[in-house]
Amino acid sequence: MPRFMGFVRMEEGGPMPPQALFEAMDVYIGEQAGKGHFLDGGGLYGTEDTVNFVVRTGETTRVDGPYAEAKEVVGGWALLQYDTVEDAIAGQQEFAELHAKYWPECNMVATLRQISDEPPTPADA
Rank of each mutant, 00 (worst) to 15 (best):
P15Q: 08
D83L: 13
E48Q: 13
D26N: 08
A100K: 01
G42V: 04
G75I: 04
F22V: 15
A96S: 12
K71R: 11
M16E: 10
F95H: 09
D87F: 01
A100Y: 07
F38E: 01
P18C: 04
E31S: 08
V74Q: 10
F38T: 05
E48T: 06
D49R: 11
R56F: 09
T84V: 06
A78Q: 10
A70C: 06
G46F: 13
G13F: 14
T61L: 10
F22K: 12
T61R: 15
L79R: 13
E72Q: 13
Y67A: 05
Q81T: 11
Q19N: 14
V73T: 07
A68S: 07
G75Q: 06
A24C: 02
D40M: 05
E86D: 15
K35M: 11
A70S: 14
D26E: 12
Q92F: 03
R62K: 15
G30A: 08
G46I: 11
A68E: 11
P15K: 15
Q19L: 09
L79Y: 13
G58H: 01
A20E: 15
E86H: 04
G76H: 01
P15T: 12
V55G: 02
M25C: 00
F95M: 04
A100H: 02
A20M: 03
I89M: 13
F95A: 03
V85P: 02
E48I: 05
H99G: 11
G34I: 04
A96T: 08
A96N: 07
L98Y: 09
V27M: 03
D83W: 09
G14P: 05
Q92E: 03
Y82E: 04
L21M: 13
N52T: 01
F38L: 00
E94N: 14
F53E: 06
G75A: 15
D87W: 04
G46H: 06
G42K: 07
D26M: 07
E72D: 14
V74F: 06
G13Y: 10
